[in-house]
């Protein structure tokens, strides 16, 4: 990757944060009218709405940084697969309810520590956005961790499903802590810290919840990485097909 200046790096970083939220929000929205009980259908819609809101803030800031008169929607809707920088875990299919809650737990724990750190960023706008998102993320974490604990200690079936979800999703977790060129530039500019440093906190928090849920972290496997550099799983392209359909089919139309 070519060297980028600080502004470009900050722009890319905003895309990363926005994309994480957009893609995870899109996945959660798939649960709309598909929840295991009506109450939970509405709960997941709330999570999804929070993520879309956070995505919009991040894209608005990205659009300002870019200074090309593009809107948050242009940025959200008009890039191609390799231009999205979300982490791989956010684009994984929902699977069953256990899989979705496990995904939410692993991501929200990460996002909590991430936003805590960013709320102290020297970039004022970034720190405000992070502080705002943090409240929502804490609720997501509470909701998902309680469900994982319920499922882990519920019936034999629910425990097996939760364990299977963990076994599959675990291998996408290291990707959230990857430090790439964007990070390096922002660390140099003292806008962010080295985010791989969040890993130990994340790990011990997740371990604590999983222990309460009576679930075991899988021992051997390969960690998939690449989301922050636009190297995705095949799932992303399909998400984008749906997401971008109208914008692509009717270029320039206002909705």
């Amino acid at each position: 990757m070519s060297t980028m200046n600080t502004k470009e790096a900050l722009y890319n970083f905003c895309l990363r944060l926005g994309d994480n939220n957009l893609i995870l929000g899109q996945r959660l929205a798939e649960w709309c009218s598909n929840g295991p009980i009506l109450e939970e259908d509405l709960a997941m819609t709330n999570l999804s709405l929070d993520h879309f809101g956070q995505a919009e803030f991040m894209y608005e800031y990205a659009a300002e940084l870019e200074g090309k008169n593009r809107t948050a929607d242009d940025i959200a809707y008009l890039r191609n697969e390799r231009g999205y920088f979300n982490s791989l875990i956010t684009e994984q299919p929902n699977g069953d309810f256990a899989f979705t809650m496990m995904k939410q737990l692993l991501y929200s724990t990460f996002a909590k520590y991430l936003y805590e750190t960013l709320s102290a960023s020297s970039d004022k706008r970034l720190s405000e956005l992070a502080a705002r998102a943090l409240k929502e993320i804490k609720y997501h974490l509470r909701h998902s961790s309680e469900w994982v604990i319920r499922l882990g200690n519920g019936t034999e079936e629910s425990r097996i499903r939760a364990q299977q979800a963990l076994n599959e999703l675990w291998w996408y977790t290291a990707d959230m802590f990857v430090v790439n060129e964007t990070d390096k530039e922002l660390i140099k500019a003292q806008i962010i810290t080295d985010l791989s440093g969040l890993y130990p906190k994340w790990k011990s928090s997740v371990e604590e919840t999983l222990k309460l849920a009576n679930l075991t972290i899988p021992a051997h496997g390969h960690m998939y990485k690449g989301g922050y550099d636009g190297n995705h799983t095949e799932h992303l392209g399909h998400i984008l097909c749906e997401l971008q359909y109208l914008q692509r089919a009717y270029p320039g139309a206002k909705w």
């Binding site: 929840g35 009980i37 256990a98 319920r150 519920g154 079936e157």
Partner: peptide, 9 residues
Amino acid sequence: EGRWVREAA
């Protein structure tokens, strides 16, 4: 599909 979730809860 949601039955197992309600049972677990």
